[in-house]
Design a protein around this nucleic acid. Structure first.
Lengths: 316, 316
DNA sequence: CCGGGGGTCGTCCCCCCTCAC
DNA sequence: GTGAGGGGGGACGACCCCCGG
């Protein structure tokens, strides 16, 4: 065996199992609920490929929107708003204008949805579009390898890989640059910031680490890159993470309604102990009841309702 | 009427009812779940008295912890961690050391729990400790007012106010400075940053705005401050907000367990429509069932379990 | 590939001041 | 009080270079 499929040798960063044990480290220090939520958010966001700075930007944007909200509620008063939130009135003005221009004109605020995972997700499509591969033909674009080398490399490529050509370093780099370009064009913000070497390497590692791109290495030869998957996300884990975040956001909204004592809102919290052998049975009974309950009251022409339930082990 | 109890003339910033309508403004632009959660978090945090910068610091801290987590998972590799999160390896090292020193030594990271609302919450206790008032005696500490003025001011003070003395501007300011000092001492971090005028004014406005402190004004006379409430929080609203945040954090944790497919975790989501006249009935039935369900399976010596439920109108 | 060193920008938080309505 | 303008300092994110193991 002269060549190896270089799979990520380090444990995947998306592996939240390990993280969860670490998580408890951070629940120990004094932290209120908001701190915990923030930490879990940061973990989820950054583990799924968001940049460090992107998360900070998103948090800043959220805070800016909060400032804008109180600005409106305070009768468009810069000084008072600034005093309430301990911000320079001058800065408040800038923030307000920024948010307003985002609401009126199409300008985007820096949110996570305008950020990189989208880049990473888009890459497979771009690769397949620019460098498609037709069965029977050679997967190589350029001719830097001998016939024998090619066949050795192609043996490493399993047939269930996406139908895309292999790329050398330069071609792969050009692809990433193209990716960055198109993504920035798609959001008509304003700034096409030049891509930096550091950013390219970051994206590259993310792609490799997630298995979206696979690096084929012959010893003593330059590396070759193959598209490993048609979607960025590592298996179904990502779907569950996404569903989790949707649920939490939704749950949060419902709870806000509960705080405001809006009618038609239920907040329930039950703590209890269950015998280990009864646990699954209990959960299934609960699950079944919910479904039948929703079915029972469902009427085509009614108020749209939603029910969120989560049950599990209680941290003591 | 020559004097007035100056109640906050602007709508209370804690009034989330108004905010909720505004909230929808921000749900319109493209934002993923994380953005929404961040926004709701920022709104909750800053509406309840946290500083703008404090929220940013907390978010940064959360992201730093996330970096530290991946640093550990990557085998204590600075470069790789930096590449994964697009952070300078040098910066990664600083962050790692910061988090580690927070875990090993008692050093605190900048979290919301080490921040101001605690200051604001502590103020009533401090006031009552330093300047208690005994029934029958004068509520004044100094002698800057004439007898007649005093009686006119004291008429403004309703008897159900906390048993604390009245303060003039200087005394009130000194109290805030003392507050800042003691709070900083209590957390043995390291830095006793000097308090700035801007911060004092921020705290002052927060206290007045929440009704914790009341400003009594005689026309043409310097203002007098009275302790308006023994707790910072405006009525029960605050409790509900706190409960909401606890629930969300908890729900988030449960969902993480669900993502990891841990055993004994249930995630339920039901969407349906309900006839308006049946809504309350349905919710009550659900509530009742949950309670009886938890009762039914409860056993003293069992696995500690928790159940979170939220139901309400579905955003379409 | 890793750690460690040296820089540079720009942004932004936080602080203070003055002056006119 | 509020808007509008002028400062300044420090922290930090993001960029680049170099070198020795």
């Amino acid at each position: 065996m002269t060549g190896t499929l270089s799979s990520p040798k380090h444990s995947s960063i998306d592996n939240l199992d390990d993280l969860h044990s670490e998580t408890k480290l951070f629940q120990v220090p004094n932290s209120c609920s908001i701190d915990q939520i923030l930490f879990q958010l940061a973990l989820s966001a950054m583990a799924s490929g968001h940049r460090y700075g992107a998360f900070l930007d998103a948090a800043t944007t959220a805070a800016k929107c909060a400032i804008y909200a109180t600005y409106l509620m305070q009768g468009r008063n810069f000084r008072r708003t600034g005093l309430l939130h301990h911000v320079d009135p001058k800065r408040v003005k800038e923030i307000v204008q920024e948010v307003q221009s985002a609401l009126t004109e199409g300008k985007w605020l820096k949110t996570l949805s305008t950020e990189e995972p989208q880049h990473l997700i888009y890459l497979p499509h771009l690769w397949l579009k620019i460098h498609p591969w037709q069965a029977g033909k050679s997967r190589f674009l350029s001719d830097e390898f001998s016939i024998r080398q090619r066949s050795r490399i192609e043996k490493l490529v399993s047939d269930d890989l996406p139908k895309a050509c292999l790329l050398n370093s330069d071609q792969f780099l050009a692809l990433i640059q193209q990716l960055h370009l198109e993504v920035q064009e798609s959001s008509p913000a304003d700034s096409y910031a030049a891509i930096s070497d550091a950013l390219v390497e970051h994206i590259k590692l993310r792609l490799l680490e997630s298995g979206t791109v696979i690096q084929l290495s012959l010893p003593e030869e330059p590396p070759v890159y193959a598209l490993g998957r048609t979607t960025y996300s590592p298996k179904d884990k990502r779907e569950r993470v996404s569903a989790m975040l949707d649920d939490v956001a939704d749950f949060f909204t419902l709870m806000q309604a509960w705080v405001n004592c809006e009618p038609g809102v239920l907040r329930g919290l039950e703590t209890f102990n269950v015998a280990p052998e009864q646990r699954e049975e209990a959960l299934q009974e609960l699950d079944k009841f919910m479904q039948s309950w929703a079915d029972k009251y469902h009427q085509r022409e009614g108020l749209p309702m939603i029910l969120h339930v989560a049950a599990g082990q209680r941290r003591v």
